[in-house]
Write a protein that binds this DNA or RNA. Sequence first.
DNA 1: CATGAATGAGAGTTCATTCAT
DNA 2: GATGAATGAACTCTCATTCAT
Lengths: 233, 233, 233, 233
Amino acid sequence: MICTEGLLRNKYILKILIDKSISIRIIFNMIKNKINNKKPEKRSIILNAALKIIKEKGFHCARMSDISNEAGISYGLIYHYFKKKERLFDTIIEEWWLSIYELLDSLKADNLDIHDKLKKIIVHFFNAYQEKPDLMNIFITEISRSTRNLIGKRLEFFIKFISKTEALIIDAQQKNEIRSDIKARYLTNIFLGSLETFVSAMVLADQELRDSEQKEQIVKSILEVFFNGASVK
Amino acid sequence: MICTEGLLRNKYILKILIDKSISIRIIFNMIKNKINNKKPEKRSIILNAALKIIKEKGFHCARMSDISNEAGISYGLIYHYFKKKERLFDTIIEEWWLSIYELLDSLKADNLDIHDKLKKIIVHFFNAYQEKPDLMNIFITEISRSTRNLIGKRLEFFIKFISKTEALIIDAQQKNEIRSDIKARYLTNIFLGSLETFVSAMVLADQELRDSEQKEQIVKSILEVFFNGASVK
Amino acid sequence: MICTEGLLRNKYILKILIDKSISIRIIFNMIKNKINNKKPEKRSIILNAALKIIKEKGFHCARMSDISNEAGISYGLIYHYFKKKERLFDTIIEEWWLSIYELLDSLKADNLDIHDKLKKIIVHFFNAYQEKPDLMNIFITEISRSTRNLIGKRLEFFIKFISKTEALIIDAQQKNEIRSDIKARYLTNIFLGSLETFVSAMVLADQELRDSEQKEQIVKSILEVFFNGASVK
Amino acid sequence: MICTEGLLRNKYILKILIDKSISIRIIFNMIKNKINNKKPEKRSIILNAALKIIKEKGFHCARMSDISNEAGISYGLIYHYFKKKERLFDTIIEEWWLSIYELLDSLKADNLDIHDKLKKIIVHFFNAYQEKPDLMNIFITEISRSTRNLIGKRLEFFIKFISKTEALIIDAQQKNEIRSDIKARYLTNIFLGSLETFVSAMVLADQELRDSEQKEQIVKSILEVFFNGASVK
DNA sequence: CATGAATGAGAGTTCATTCAT
DNA sequence: GATGAATGAACTCTCATTCAT
């Protein structure tokens, strides 16, 4: 849109294009080549290195040279791909949230009952922890809490996450799958809090979910307490 | 009466003040200190200033000069009371934990049932938030999560907190006040997670517990879900 | 006719273009170069681009990438034509001086009286300003003064310029067209200074010599004061 | 003004001041001491070092570490006195212009004829060159020309200089001390141009005004040509 | 010819900490 | 106790230049 206006405005160029009958496809390919030439491997190498260093040192203490060292490249190259330190971090955060949103959106459209939906959320977090523990670590220590990092766009991300989860709870209340005498927001807090604490515990203790049996047990416990409570029946 | 005109007349001095951007806050503090000749405990002034600045900027971004500015003293003086920046931080954290331990220890000796014990923990946190929101903020954002800060002594503090709470749960299980088919550690995680998420929400949103009714409701919700679950009965 | 809709339809590509902030200028230049298949002298394209950028930012602040962007080429290519940034600058300066020397040498051989010779110098500078204001700007701001740039070969250029002008003055003194009681070097300084200040004023104010009448007037004023003085007769 | 509003508003403090009848004089002295304590020697040492380095390397190439080295202090200290590199340069430039303005303003009020006024300007520049050649060098190479440096406030300084000089010329035209058939601005340009070129020549060649006789001769030459012209009478 | 990913020396700036007064 | 001038290690970011493709 924006680009095209600029292009259209330049009547001189267009006139030449017409005179020489150069098809838009040629221009197209020129642009495509320009874009695709950028080998994306290095970019993701940098992202993974950043992930690891941030996990070890935290956002503030992670130096660009640490990251470049870890990635095995010069630090100048990081600036080639990410204009500022902040951009690098924003990229990491953004990718994390997008994966969460994807899940939550798919659950919204799903026909499962609330128990199974919440189970899927828990499993998603646990899997994420197993697959990319560094990323999960950052989520817990740098994203999910610190007020300082939760400015502007970042805060929006977080609120969106809460709201999307709350929507599932509200939906369940309307379907009478779950108590309505407690505010949906409160239930959301309680559920996400339980989950987060387990993940935190794993992250902080650098603990692994040793076997699938243990994992299964934790999932069951969270759901059991959330739905049926801790009281002796 | 005070002759304010004397000050107003001397435009030259004012100009310099402006040029050198000497904030009125500093002058205020100078005046304040001069007035209270009995030299109030500078140490606690510094701690409170640190609390406020760390809340606003986070530990890493809080500069010593920010803190001394806020305290209305020179930054050299901070080093007189606290040898290092880290000591300042440690002191703040330590005071926090001690207040928690005091509570948990008193609860252990208490004869209340688990419901009332957990209620007291919740209320303690909520009161702490109302009385010293800055401190609670730091607990949530800097202590309770960040792996970086959880090294050595600090991690011990945290583990001790979990364990002391877990002890209450175990005790309740033995008294059959609470389910034993779920690991005490899991129940602890779930309870503390629920609580923490509420506190986090308040901290992150700079929300106040507006009235005691709302507060009461939240306390009840957490306990209700924890003991009886979210399922429709 | 060109099928612009093709471009409009592909929103994905456009988005990437925006994200990567690939300016429309670059695409323009790509297109331009593709069109003029006879590959126009890249060397002069680079020189003109450099001229423009140096005028805008000064030699020190002009980045090679600015110049390559302006020229619509990769910055690697600049190094193909000019081994170093400095070479680029030297080339620009050299071309400027050669044009001046050419004039001064032709004047030396000429039979005009000193008044007309000096007039030709003034007119030459004014014309140069009108035709290549960027180059004149660089002459004034980067060449004619800065001590830093006047090292080695560059200083020689400058001294040669002064000397060649002085030669005209000496010649005039010998022909008794002009006072001999003032050192030729002094007269040269005074004349060139007057001229240069006018050019500087135009350059600094980005002023144009609006009409030939104004131009005529300034030329006349400089000569009139130089030859007859500012005193009331 | 601004400050006092802030002060007046704080009724609490004022009340205490009144209760304790602390005179405003005490506060005054506290402020004064705060201001005077700053030993100004280091500041001027830095300025002189900067002057020398800038002369040698130019604004752009002058590194902060060069300056601190020259001054024999750590570079951190420069930032203690001048918040940014730019501030340091602005301070230098500002001091220069103020000395010029002082002269021009005193001349305006003076009863001398235009010949003697212009002579005083020339002598001022020559003296300045002899006393502070570094500063004069910077004026010629960095201030008086470069468009890049002439942005915002800096351009204003320059224009003010031209205008103040022009005012003297206009005054002289009105008193019929000088030709009115040539625009005052043109005459100003011619005069300042002549002067500047001499100073430039000295600066560029690192030439000294060897004896007062030579100096006298140059002053005389500039004035003689400016008022009576170069033509043979 | 032409490209642009890759390099790394080097610049500005910040800020915890020391120490003479 | 109290001050703030002084220090310098450490960090982010820039940009001329090289070189494989």
